[in-house]
Simulated assay, not measured.
Amino acid sequence: MRALLVVNPRATATTQRSRDILVRALESAVDLTVRYTERRGHATTLARAAAESGVDVVVTLGGDGTVNEAVNGLMTAPAALAGLAGPPAFRLPALAVVPGGSTNVFARALGLPRGWADGTSVILDGLRDGRHRVISLGRADDRYFTFTAGLGLDAAVVRRVEQARLRGRTSTPGLYLRALAGQVFTGADRADPPLTLERPGESSEPGLGTVIVQNTAPWTYVGDRPVDPNPDASFDLGLDLLALRRLKVSATARTVTQLAWRSGDPHGKHVFRLHDLAEFTVVSSRPQAFQLDGDYLGERQKVHFVSVPSALRVIC
Results as ranks from 00 to 15, higher is better:
residue 313 R to F: 03
residue 171 S to K: 14
residue 182 G to E: 12
residue 305 F to V: 04
residue 40 R to P: 10
residue 19 R to C: 12
residue 84 L to P: 00
residue 130 G to Y: 04
residue 293 D to V: 07
residue 137 L to I: 10
residue 119 G to W: 05
residue 222 V to H: 03
residue 82 A to G: 04
residue 82 A to F: 00
residue 30 V to F: 07
residue 208 L to V: 05
residue 274 L to S: 12
residue 50 A to L: 01
residue 204 S to W: 12
residue 167 R to V: 07
residue 12 T to G: 14
residue 81 L to N: 02
residue 292 L to F: 03
residue 107 A to D: 06
residue 15 T to W: 04
residue 292 L to Y: 03
residue 209 G to S: 09
residue 172 T to V: 04
residue 31 D to W: 11
residue 98 V to M: 10
residue 205 E to Y: 13
residue 311 A to F: 04
residue 17 R to Y: 10
residue 268 G to V: 06
residue 251 A to L: 11
residue 56 D to G: 15
residue 21 I to K: 13
residue 85 A to W: 07
residue 206 P to G: 02
residue 31 D to H: 14
residue 218 P to D: 05
residue 296 Y to V: 06
residue 216 T to M: 00
residue 178 R to F: 10
residue 67 V to P: 01
residue 211 V to K: 01
residue 247 L to C: 10
residue 266 P to Q: 05
residue 208 L to A: 05
residue 205 E to G: 05
residue 250 S to I: 13
residue 207 G to V: 04
residue 198 E to I: 14
residue 49 A to Y: 02
residue 268 G to L: 05
residue 85 A to Q: 14
residue 31 D to N: 14
residue 121 S to A: 15
residue 211 V to Y: 00
residue 312 L to V: 08
residue 303 V to M: 09
residue 110 L to I: 09
residue 228 D to C: 11
residue 283 V to G: 09
residue 129 D to A: 15
residue 187 G to W: 10
residue 123 I to D: 06
residue 255 T to V: 15
residue 98 V to K: 12
residue 95 L to V: 12
residue 196 T to D: 07
residue 294 G to Q: 00
residue 199 R to V: 12
residue 291 Q to M: 09
residue 218 P to Q: 02
residue 251 A to K: 14
residue 249 V to G: 01
residue 109 A to R: 06
residue 296 Y to T: 04
residue 314 V to W: 08
residue 173 P to Q: 02
residue 8 N to E: 07
residue 215 N to Q: 12
residue 15 T to P: 05
residue 248 K to R: 15
residue 73 G to D: 00
residue 167 R to S: 14
residue 308 V to E: 08
residue 54 G to F: 01
residue 65 G to Q: 03
residue 202 E to N: 13
residue 46 L to V: 05
residue 254 R to C: 02
residue 306 V to L: 14
residue 207 G to A: 04
residue 265 D to C: 08
residue 1 M to R: 13
residue 211 V to L: 06
residue 193 P to V: 04
residue 56 D to R: 14
residue 192 D to W: 02
residue 312 L to D: 01
residue 245 R to G: 13
residue 157 V to R: 12
residue 292 L to C: 02
residue 164 A to L: 12
residue 266 P to M: 10
residue 68 N to S: 14
residue 86 G to E: 11
residue 212 I to L: 15
